[in-house]
Amino acid sequence: MSTTVVRLAAAGDAPGSGVFSVAAATTSAPALALDGICLSFGGIRALRDISFDVAPGEIRAIIGPNGAGKSSLVNVISGLYRADAGTVQIAGQAFARMPASRLAKIGVARTFQNLALFPGLTAAQNIASGLAFRRRSGLLAQVLGLSAARSESAREDEEVREIAAFLGIGGVLDRLVSTLPYGVQKQVDLARALVAEPNLLMLDEPMAGLTVTEKAEMAAHIRAVRDRTGLAIILIEHDIGVVMELSDRIAVLDHGVKIADGTPVEIRRDPEVIRAYLGAEAA
């Protein structure tokens, strides 16, 4: 498996130093390629023959009105839904059905539209859960406090602190996540996805419910993450301003069909998109 190991450095480091350079392992193949994905629920065709790809280091937005199939698409890529037809190709491996339980190992992480944090755990424990997939020490080693287990935990704690500092939530790590404000919980959700150092990150409405200030902060984080680690990002978002500003390319879905695909400038001008989604005032 070709995992790009690009560590997020502490927040204080200047961009441009060697730590942030993108590892070259996956720059050739697309980070994600969808080919002819179809999905239906009973009689409703949620996705019809969707194909698109995401290049490494690219921020790729998927937009569309409610019910267009955006979240369904992310759920297909996450392995939560099984596509009726088509393949998902990630880092050169093709899947008819993505194995949800091995997603993290394949290098894919995601956040959730309606926060799917673990309210009974602290922020730090929530974030550390993002590392569970690669944990090697078993229950017995942990219970007996063997040195391998202890050093693994210490390493994880260090990574959790690093990512938390990067996202500016270092001060709330020991708080129960359910006691944190919504905007901070969104950051914890992002941290939990990022700590696994994925090659592909799927953000399902990261701005939903945030204030204007929090949105700006979240957008800055998303861009900073991409710039520093070179991961590919799929961004599902309703705030069209944010999407236009952040994304490199945008795919537009309407009723399960991809009606447009291109750069923000192209999308803004596309008559189909204006009709279906942007509305007259954006034209």
Partner: peptide
């Protein structure tokens, strides 16, 4: 606790 609180999320992030 992660499995208890949100099984789907736990599965997807690799628990």
């Amino acid at each position: 606790i992660a499995v208890r609180d949100d099984e789907t999320a736990a599965k997807v992030i690799g628990v």
